[in-house]
């Protein structure tokens, strides 16, 4: 259980004068749910973007299963097993729910430079896609245009897309954002159910969810890691309380 799947070493990224990530280091052990928390603007999304390749790091290194991926483009990292969800839901609104997931499967199922065969009728894509939809509870919506789903369902759909191809690491940017209490509870159950097969880096503002799910927690403030460790230790850490948790309770 202590094998490292993903390791970030001293990742740094500036935007003009702002240092959004300042020498952030973090390691994910296989099978764990690692929560990344911190106040608004702390640099959590930036850090995920550095890991997924949406943004280039100014300095630092990223290792996925021991392999240096620092210079690889987003799509290569995804093919190597780095999947993600976005803070603002990101699906393919013009396609059906099934097509959304089946395209995600397609990304991991050989070349897509195939011009003739009907992909929408390919059981090798549709069957795993249907299974995934069933797993997350969206089977009934398979034929609907994705744009017609409710917000909560869209977030679940995005999770299903990220799960296609059995990723090594799942980067989740506030999966509970905008969900009602009932939907939120179901999302937490869903994520808990992915353990221990999927290693997760979970960015989340909902502290109940974080402390229910996380095996370890890292706290980011102004682009810096101020604490990292098991949830109980983090909860008691005075620096964390004053920098973050205290604010949360006060506000």
């Amino acid at each position: 259980m202590s094998e490292e799947v993903l390791r970030a070493v001293d990742l740094t990224r500036r935007f003009g004068g702002v240092i959004a990530c300042d020498r952030v280091s973090l390691a994910l052990r296989r099978g764990e749910i690692h929560a990344l928390i911190g106040p608004n603007g702390a640099g959590k999304t930036t850090f995920l973007n550095l890991l997924s390749g949406e943004l280039a790091a100014d300095s630092g290194r990223i290792l996925l299963c021991g392999r240096d991926i620092t210079r690889l483009p987003t799509h290569r990292r995804a093919r190597l097993g780095l999947a993600r969800s976005f803070q603002i839901t990101s699906i393919l609104p013009g396609m059906s729910v099934l097509e959304n997931v089946s395209l995600a499967i397609q990304a991991h199922a050989g070349s897509s430079f195939r011009f003739f065969a009907d992909a929408g009728r390919d059981p090798a894509l549709n069957e795993p896609a249907s299974e995934l939809l069933a797993r997350v509870g969206l089977r009934e919506c398979a034929g609907l245009p994705a744009a017609r789903l409710a917000h909560g369902q869209k977030r679940v759909l995005e999770l299903a897309m990220a799960l296609a191809g059995d990723p090594e690491v799942l980067l989740l940017d506030e999966p509970l954002a905008g969900l009602g209490p009932e939907e939120g509870r179901r999302m937490v159950e869903l994520l808990a159910g992915l353990r221990p097969r999927t290693t997760m880096l979970l960015v989340e503002h909902d502290m109940d969810a974080v402390f229910r799910l996380a095996d370890r927690v890292t706290v980011l403030v102004y682009g810096r890691v101020i604490a990292s460790g098991d949830p109980d230790g983090i909860r008691r850490d005075p620096e964390v309380r004053s920098a973050y948790l205290g604010e949360e309770e006060g506000g």
């Binding site: 995804a78 999947a83 993600r84």
Partner: peptide, 12 residues
Amino acid sequence: DNDRRMRALGFP
């Protein structure tokens, strides 16, 4: 539809 999502899925 959504180029960013497609790249994140693994498509160049």
